[in-house]
Design a protein around this nucleic acid. Structure first.
Length: 687
DNA sequence: GTAGGGTTAG
């Protein structure tokens, strides 16, 4: 308008200002304001009101208030705009102040006034529920109960504060209900986790032939996400396609997210691939699906593809990608991603920093994790939990507990259930029995009801430290559903302390509970082997086979020059396999010279002693180490990730290897980290 | 002609 020389009148100014408000463009808005003056419209109530709205939407509340104060005559809409401006800025008291002034001036608020103020209440703290309630009463007093918009906004306010009964009562009392009313109540039930009721209402809505739109479907798909059932998801998808809403961008995002969270990654990917203009939301939903269902490689590949498009990852995308990186255990990739984060100015986001801490801990670099942690400002509970948990899995119990104390004393942050899991796990990995029991009590005194994880940590803590009877008594005092799971760590402790009698008792309880996890059979079989009861061990294996259970094959990976090499037990498929086995021979000779004796207890009983040693030698972690030694400069730290727990023999061999080769070996097994250096391990053989 | 209701990714 300005450039073309077309002159505004008091009709066009509000329209143009509305456009500025929508764009949030304060520069254009101010220019228009100048023209308002030049054209002599500064006294027009319509124009002034539009200016108030424009300034507030361009985050310039003081200009709005200034204009409002200077107005000689105000319409109800002017008041509404100003009230709405304060509500959007969460200044609920200011907007209530204006409402009071209106009543003082004998100006009757319109339903819109109340709509604005009620939506302002929804965005404020819990105390605002009382304000919201008072507005509901005021609306009744003013005879505005039949106003659809007002009823919808009051209903949404109740939903916001989880007052589903109040919302439902209002919903059923409404003579007129729109798609928005139905969507609000459906969304309300989804919010409180009652997805069944949400779908009941949805069916009722369809029976009453209320028109359906994208937003109701987005709500329902988020409900499906909670339930996690693929068949519900696909039938909803069918309805969406039938309604023709499936090509709406937010709906596509929700569908991908829904299928991803239900674990149907194939369906999610199908929709994802069909979308032409992929938003960051869409990319993130797909990447997070891969991450959460254990496909970190696919997640990271997709992220690489994303980087070659015009879409940009945001903080949430990067937090997800870092989590994939943590699962994969690729330190070099993690560092590359950190570099990307830094280059793109996303490094000040706390969620990203927390994911970095988590990633570095899980990739074995506790030092880098600590650096990121130290750099972060305004650390929240999640950040502290990540660092505490990091120390826990690295067996650095003292550091974990110090941090826990610091978090409470210095920062005044109240611990939650998650951080206590980290603390108990730290105690368990470091053998701090007394402290662990103390924290378990402290936690309950803090009003936290122990979860399954807490109980499992406690049993693990007691069992691992050899207090088997105490662990048993603890289990017996646990709530029934927890007991079933708690037998597993106790069985593991029995195996460690070779308490065959208790082990058999525990195994019986486990098998009675039909808890037929492969690991339970393996634990029992190994326990029998360790005391020479070969026959019983064979029975265990047979029972396992009869049930069609297969032992998870062990694998280890090592990252060299940015690429990951995976080895299976006895693997000969690596292109440098010959060299690897030669290196192992040399290494074994040196190991024997250094006094290492192979522990053969875990080997197959029907093998000869030499054969047993042979079987142990080719454990996947040994192949990974040999390859690492072959392909890196002397003195380079080697980081190995293994899916199962390291066996006693490999643990002992690694201590020797670290001494012979003067290498720092960092091993992440199925449970924790081991740092081998100069012949000893950070776990002090307590694992 | 100005204000005002339901929305997806960790």
């Amino acid at each position: 308008m300005l450039k073309s020389g077309v002159h505004g009148n008091n009709f066009t100014f509000p329209l143009v200002l509305k456009a500025c408000a929508k764009l949030g463009s304060i520069r254009d808005g101010t220019k228009i304001h100048t023209h308002v003056f030049l054209m002599g419209f500064q006294g027009d109530v319509f124009v002034q009101t539009a200016l108030i709205d424009m300034y507030s939407k361009c985050s310039n509340l003081s200009s709005s208030r200034h204009l409002f104060d200077e107005m000689p005559i105000r319409s109800v809409v002017s008041w509404n705009s100003m009230i709405s401006a304060y509500c959007k800025d969460f200044q609920i008291d200011e907007s209530f102040g204006l409402l009071k002034q209106m009543r003082f001036l004998d100006l009757e608020p319109s339903s819109s006034t109340l709509v604005s103020i009620v939506s302002g209440c929804s965005g404020s703290g819990f105390g605002a529920l009382w304000h919201g309630l008072s507005i509901h009463c005021y609306g009744i007093k003013l005879g505005l109960t039949s106003d659809l918009l007002l009823s919808n906004s009051i209903m949404s306010m109740y939903i916001q504060f989880d007052q589903i009964d109040a919302a439902r009562a209002l919903f059923y009392s409404m003579a007129e209900k729109s798609t928005i009313s139905w969507t609000a109540i459906i969304g309300g039930f989804i919010k409180i986790g009652d997805v069944g009721e949400a779908f009941n209402l949805f069916n009722q809505m369809r029976q009453e032939q209320i028109s359906l739109d994208s937003i109701v479907f987005i709500n329902l798909s988020s409900g499906c996400t909670q339930v996690g059932r693929v068949f519900v998801a696909s039938s909803l998808h069918g309805l969406i396609v039938k309604s023709g809403c499936d090509c709406d961008e937010p709906v596509e995002n929700s569908l991908v997210s829904m299928y991803s969270k239900c674990g149907d990654l194939v369906s999610a990917r199908k929709i994802f691939d069909l979308v032409h203009e992929k938003s960051t939301f869409l990319w993130t939903a797909m990447i997070s699906g891969y991450t959460h269902f254990g496909y970190p490689n696919e997640a990271l590949n997709l992220f690489k593809i994303l980087l070659n498009t015009s879409s940009r990852p945001n903080e949430v995308t990067l937090a997800t990608v870092l989590s994939a990186c943590a699962d994969l255990g690729s330190l070099s990739l993690g560092r590359e991603i950190e570099e990307y984060i830094r280059m793109n100015g996303l490094d000040s986001d706390l969620r990203v920093q927390t994911s970095l801490v988590h990633m570095y801990c899980k990739c074995g670099s506790i030092e880098r994790a600590k650096e990121v942690f130290d750099r972060a400002c305004n650390r929240d509970l999640t950040m502290w939990s990540s660092m505490i948990n990091g120390y826990a899995i690295h067996g650095m119990g003292e550091e974990a507990l110090n941090l826990f104390v610091k978090m409470q004393r210095q920062e005044g942050i109240k611990p939650d259930s998650v951080v206590y899991t980290g603390v108990l796990s730290a105690c368990s990995h470091s053998g701090f029995v007394e402290e662990g029991m103390k924290f378990f009590e402290c936690m309950q005194r803090d009003g936290i009801v122990p979860s399954v994880e807490h109980y499992l940590c406690l049993v693990d803590l007691l069992g691992r430290a050899g207090y088997l009877k105490l662990a048993l008594n603890t289990i017996e005092e646990m709530p029934e559903p927890v007991q079933a799971q708690a037998w597993v760590p106790l069985l593991s402790a029995c195996r460690k302390h070779r308490d065959i009698e208790l082990g058999e008792f525990v195994a019986k309880r486990l098998f009675d509970l039909e808890s037929h996890g492969t690991s339970n059979y393996i634990l029992m079989a190994n326990m029998y082997i360790s005391i020479g009861r070969w026959k019983d061990a064979a029975t265990m294996r047979r029972l396992m086979n009869d049930k069609g259970l297969v032992k998870e094959p062990g694998w280890s990976q090592i990252e060299v020059n940015g690429s990951i090499h995976v080895f299976l037990v006895g693997d000969q498929s690596h292109h440098r396999s010959v060299e690897i086995y030669e290196k192992l021979d040399v290494l074994n000779a040196k190991l024997r010279e250094a006094g290492y004796v192979a522990e053969t207890e875990m080997a197959m009983h029907d093998l000869e002693k030499e054969e047993r040693e042979e079987a142990l030698r080719v454990h996947s972690e040994r192949l990974a180490i040999a390859f690492g030694l072959l392909s890196t400069e002397p003195g380079t730290t080697l980081r190995i990730i293994k899916n199962l727990r390291t066996c006693n023999d490999c643990h002992s061999a690694f201590k020797f290897i670290s001494k012979i080769t003067s290498r720092h070996l960092i091993v992440r097994d199925g449970h924790r980290f081991h740092h081998f250096e100069s012949g000893s391990c950070s776990c002090r053989d307590f694992w």
